[in-house]
Structure formats: C-alpha cells, structure tokens
Design a protein around this nucleic acid. Sequence first.
DNA 1: CGAGTATTTGATGCAGTTCAACGCTCGTGG
DNA 2: CCACGAGCGTTGAACTGCATCAAATACTCG
Lengths: 242, 242
Amino acid sequence: MATSCQNCPLRKKPIFKELSSHELRFMSEFKSGELTVEPGTPILMEGSNSPQLYTALRGMGLRYKLLESGERQVVNFVFPGDFLGLQAAVMGEMGHSVEASTAMTLCVFDRNALWEFFRSHPERAFDVTWIAAEEEHFMGEALLSVGQRNAVEAIAWALVKMHQRGEALGLTRNGEMHLPYRQQDLADALGLSLVHTNKSLAKLRDRQLATWRNGRLALHDIEQLRQVAKLDEEAPRVRPLM
Amino acid sequence: MATSCQNCPLRKKPIFKELSSHELRFMSEFKSGELTVEPGTPILMEGSNSPQLYTALRGMGLRYKLLESGERQVVNFVFPGDFLGLQAAVMGEMGHSVEASTAMTLCVFDRNALWEFFRSHPERAFDVTWIAAEEEHFMGEALLSVGQRNAVEAIAWALVKMHQRGEALGLTRNGEMHLPYRQQDLADALGLSLVHTNKSLAKLRDRQLATWRNGRLALHDIEQLRQVAKLDEEAPRVRPLM
DNA sequence: CGAGTATTTGATGCAGTTCAACGCTCGTGG
DNA sequence: CCACGAGCGTTGAACTGCATCAAATACTCG
C-alpha cells in the first residue's frame, strides 16, 4: 500500500528539509505511485529519456556508466532520499544508468511535475537545482579521490562517506550499518581492480580501522580513517526531499 | 567598455540558445559589470561563498580542487560561455576553485539575480538547472575517463572533448585551436603524472593523431582519436548562456 | 549436496610514478 | 647586448602500486 507524502517515513529525518503543508499537498498531487523492484533491476538507462522521476524511499542502488569495451564506472551509490532521473528530465538524456542493489521502493513522479515546479513552485524548483548542484559537488569529490588518492586512501574516503550518509539517515547502530554492495562495486567506483580493492580492505581491517564483511560495515576509528582519507570533518548538509 | 547583453558576442553563436528580447532586457538588468583578470588570477575559492556569479566572456581557465597534501585535481576547463559560481549561489559554498589560465573577461551578476530567476523567470531558472545537470553529466564522463581509461585513451578523450568545445565556439581554424594550458594542467585533470602525460602526448604525436605544441592543439585524425578514446560521436548540445 | 556467486590469497608483470638532468624561451637587470 | 634565472617541455632510468592471472576458500540458495 502506497504511503502518502504526509506519512512518508523519510520526511521526518532531520537530514531532510521540512516542507510546508502546502508543498506537501502539491507533491502528493504529482506522486503517481510507488514502484517496488528486486535486487539487480535496472531502473534508468544511460542515454534514455525516462518519462518518470523517482525518489528512493527504501533500499540501495548504484549509478554507473559503461564503456563499450565493458569497463564500468560507478559514479555514485543510491541511498534512500536520493532523487533519480533528473538529468533525463532536464536535459532529455540520462548521463548514467541506475540499478537496484537491494530490493527498493521508489516514489514515482511524472516528469512534467518538474515543469510544474518551475512554473508555479519556485521553492521546489530551487530545491531541484540544489540537488543537481550537490550531485555535481559530490562528483567533484569522487573525481578527486579517483585521480589523486591511492587505493587505501580512496577506500577509506568511500567508507567514511557512505557511513556518513548512513548516519544521516539513521541507518547506523553503534558505528555499524548495512552496506549491501559487492567489493566489485566499490572497485568500479574507485577505478581499482577487484583484487587490489580486496587487499586494500584487508589492510584497513588489519590496521583496525574498518571492517566490511557480510554486507555490514563497521568503522572502528573514524577520526583516523578521515586522516588516512585526507578528509576533513564536515557537517552533513540539510537537503531537500522530493 | 562593457558590452550590453544585446551586443554580447557570444550570444550569436549557434551553440547558445536564443533569448527572447524580454529575457535579454532582464539579464541586462542584473548584469552588474565586467571583470577583466590576468592569467593566473584566482576567481572563486573552494569553500567560499561568493556573492557574485560570472559568465566567462573571453579567455580560458580551470576549475580545480586541492587536497591538503597538495595534490590538485582539475575538475574541468573553463571556456567562454561557462557559468561560474553556481554552487556557491545555490548551496552556499563552492565545491572547487576557479582560476584564469589566460587573460579573461567575466560578466558579473549579483547573486540575488538567481533568486529573481526562480521567482519571476522560470525559463531562466530552468536554464540554470540545465547547466547544473550538464556539469554533473560532464563530471561523470571525466570520472569514467580517470577511473577506466589508460593514459593514452584518457588524453585522447580530453583532447577530443576540448576540441569539440572549441569547435562549438568557433575557436578552431582547420582543425587547430588555441589551447592555453600546461601539460601539468592536463595531468592533474586525468590523475596522471606530468612525465607520463608528456610521454603519452608524444605517442599520440608519433601516431599522427594529435599535436599540441606552443599552446596550439591540432587534431589530425579525429575519427581515430575517438576510437582510441572509446568515445562515440555526439552532436554538441545547444546550451543556455547566462 | 552441488552450482553459482563472492571473497581471499599468492605470484608475476607492467603501466605509470618518481627522480634526475637537460633544453628551450622569454623576461629582467646589469 | 649578454648573463641569468624562472617556467615549461622533453627524455632516460629505476622503482612500485596496482593490474592481471590463477586457484582456493567461503557463502547462498534451490
């Protein structure tokens, strides 16, 4: 049974900006349903022009690009609250594909909701822009990691980042969280080989900094991990939820 | 003498979307002046919250991020028509720095122009979002290059991309264009060492594919370069000019 | 239990880094 | 007018982080 935006379980999390009841009603109007998908299901395809926009309500996924020769670059991990399909809605074409890693529930909007935002709800339109800018910001960080950090540093960076995101969503319990990806996914995100990723993870384990096993990530010393990753503390930004 | 938006030399180039005369007047209203800077001048700083937005009118520059340890990741190259400062205006903080590589002329807007767009000019607000989405799209491509292509492939990719951009702006003459960057800039964009970048450029020269010398780039066989870069042809998108 | 998928470990090789030196060009000052 | 130094490009040689190859060990699920 589809939840209304009123009862959206994500809405209440402090990481998300509050919506006025007017905005809430407006969003409900454009919500055209919910979609539940199996692990491994493709949700959006690079180059396609989906008529739908999604907000991830539950579950996790991947954004990635493929080279004709088969190499895969994971460009981001999808967490609850993420907005999917923006590029297609704005530019007419997705720059990457999206697929589910776990079972996911997606909130579905029709694309012309976007036009409606710009025409009659400038605050919501601004939020969309905020999301695009944030995504760009993140990609810059990722580029910095892949280009300038070595394997251990990059992995430390990625683990801290994902843990941070989990924390902001209340997905952690005593520094531990569910992380339903394969090592291959992380390798493809950081431009590393699977083998080297595995060995570098082992180093972090040996140094008692982080353990990621059986789909659970535990960070034992975030401060030191941050140092290894050359990452400085930053408060998570309050973000809009679409 | 500052040119008015009416006479903006960029406006007429076919790569840029046409503006209605009403939009044109509106933009002029918000243009607060022009800024001319020397090569090497910092324009925006990562982490800062500039009250100004810029459109590059003339000259070229770099967007980059620094690691505390000194490594630099160039996240994009700035060409005429690029919009600078969007992240600060939307999120309150730049994700990267911007600096001039050549002498540049920038068109200056006050930041609250942006708010005005969203409040009263939804088409312009949409254009801003388009730009953010395009920037995100490009960063995904760059991430793919740095993560999955080897040195020669990545360099071929970058050269073709930059040539494409030059072409769209009418900066090329028989396949040649001015490319005022140092090899170090390209190296930092692709996560490569200077030495290896130099040697890989030499390979492309030896294979008669591309020559980049004395600030001039010449592509001798774009089709083959594209193949080397695993890059498929795509028509340049018509983009908004702010 | 067996097949398929993911993780782990070891061994070998190479793409790319690092170190070092040299050349070219241009601007500056004596 | 030449000497000098700074910045950038080029080249060679040695080293290493990471890729690749190969195979064994877990884990999952019908």
